[in-house]
Deep mutational scan, measured.
Amino acid sequence: MTFKLIINGKTLKGETTTEAVDAATAEKVLKQYANDNGIDGEWTYDDATKTFTVTE
Rank of each mutant, 00 (worst) to 15 (best):
A20V: 04
N8K: 12
G38K: 09
E15Q: 06
N35G: 12
T53D: 02
K4R: 12
T51I: 07
G41F: 03
E42Q: 11
G9A: 09
V54R: 00
E15D: 06
I6D: 03
N35S: 11
Q32W: 06
Y33K: 03
T49V: 07
T55P: 01
G38T: 04
A34D: 00
K50S: 07
D46C: 06
T53I: 10
T17L: 09
E56M: 07
T53F: 05
T18Q: 05
M1W: 14
I39T: 03
K28Q: 15
Y33P: 00
V21F: 14
K28L: 11
E15H: 06
Q32M: 08
K28W: 12
A34C: 09
K28H: 09
E56C: 05
T53S: 06
G9F: 15
A48P: 10
T53V: 12
V29S: 11
D36V: 09
G41E: 01
Q32T: 09
E56H: 05
N8C: 06
A24S: 11
D46F: 04
Y45C: 01
E42N: 10
L12D: 09
E56S: 06
T11A: 13
T44P: 01
F52T: 00
K10V: 14
T16S: 07
D36F: 08
Y45E: 00
F52M: 01
T25H: 13
T49K: 08
M1P: 10
A34L: 07
N37I: 13
T2M: 12
G38V: 04
T25K: 07
T55M: 09
D46W: 04
A26C: 02
Q32N: 13
A24M: 10
Y45D: 01
W43P: 00
E19Q: 14
T49Q: 08
K31S: 05
I6S: 04
A26N: 00
E42F: 10
G14T: 14
K13R: 15
L5V: 04
K31M: 10
K10Q: 14
D47W: 13
T49P: 02
L30A: 02
E27P: 00
I6L: 09
D47A: 12
T11P: 05
A23I: 13
T11S: 13
G9V: 15
D40L: 11
T17P: 02
T11R: 04
T18Y: 09
A23G: 05
I6H: 06
K10R: 13
L5T: 01
Y33N: 02
G41A: 03
A24H: 13
T17V: 08
I7H: 05
K4L: 09
V29R: 13
F52N: 00
N8L: 11
E56N: 05
N8I: 15
V29E: 08
A26G: 04
T49H: 07
I6E: 04
M1H: 14
A48V: 13
D40I: 13
V54F: 03
E15M: 04
V29K: 11
W43S: 00
D46Y: 04
T17H: 11
N8H: 09
